[in-house]
């Protein structure tokens, strides 16, 4: 069977199903399930090959179609004495397809109306402040007050400007944890015996981010026993030295808890 390559995407699985049914000139009320399922699956394969993402919703309907196909193959049961009532397994699907088609028709109607009524224009609500009674605002201040106020305004702007710049610059040169680690490790690997204070490990002491990053890297490396630290008094200087494992490289370098557990 030759398949026409459809360039337009279908709105959804029902859209595709309706198309296939109409294309095969089937009556909705008598769907040949096996045939339509085969076409549907084939179309999904075409979509996948064309690299179009086949959303899971399409797969859900595919599963339903396959399920329906198997139901259609089963002989219809009916017990003696009861009404010869054979529930058509297709009924549910047919109802859903009809419902979908209804709303699709509605959407087409809405599209036409929208195209027509978009040329009916309104004037947005007016800004009628000019008409409402508003108290007159007068500036009551002497020269000195005015100058002070203006000065404060300038200071504030300057502060905001600085903050903004700092934020921008730290955004730009966002030092990664790895880079920080490498930097600190190198300091001790070059000269194993050295003592450094925590402050020495931080590149830009004014940058809160840098300080936090350096500290957390330090903590991690202490845990890995690559570094050792001593703080003699609370809030006193933190004296950092090389740890036992300063030279060891390996999987421990990465904060990979799962691997760590496996090794343990």
């Amino acid at each position: 069977m030759a398949y026409k390559v459809i360039l337009d995407n279908f709105e959804g699985p029902f859209d595709l199903l309706v198309y296939l049914i109409e294309n095969a000139r089937m009556s909705i009320y008598d769907i040949r399930v096996a045939e339509i399922t085969e076409q549907y699956m084939a179309y999904m394969e075409v979509m996948e090959q064309a690299d179009a993402a086949v959303s899971s919703d399409f797969l859900v309907l595919a599963a339903e179609l396959i399920d329906l196909k198997s139901k259609m193959l089963l002989p219809r049961l009916h017990t003696e004495g009861e009404d010869d009532f054979k529930e058509d397994p297709r009924r549910d699907l047919v109802e859903r397809i009809l419902e979908y088609k209804q709303f699709k028709a509605v959407s087409q109607m809405l599209a036409e109306r929208e195209a027509r009524f978009r040329y009916v224009l309104e004037k947005p609500r007016e800004d009628i402040l000019a008409y409402t009674a508003s108290p007159k605002e007068e500036l009551i201040a002497d020269d000195a007050q005015f100058v002070r106020a203006f000065h404060r305004f300038l200071q504030r702007r300057k502060r905001l400007g600085e903050i903004r710049r700092r934020y921008e610059s730290s955004e730009r040169k966002r030092i990664t944890a790895e880079a920080r680690r490498a930097f600190i490790l190198r300091l001790f690997q070059e000269k194993p015996g050295r003592h450094l204070s925590f402050e020495d490990l931080v590149e830009d002491k004014d940058d809160a981010y840098d300080v936090a990053l350096s500290f957390s890297s330090l903590m991690e490396m202490i845990r890995e026993r690559k570094l050792s630290a001593v703080q003699a008094v609370p809030f006193g200087t933190i004296d950092v030295t090389a740890g036992e494992e300063i030279r060891t490289e390996g999987e421990d370098d990465h904060d990979d808890h799962t691997r760590r557990e496996v090794r343990a």
Binding site: E11, G12, F103, Q108, L110, A111, E114, A115
Partner: peptide
Amino acid sequence: RLSQSALEVLAI
């Protein structure tokens, strides 16, 4: 213009 899917949802 509203997309086909938008119109369908709106219809529903």
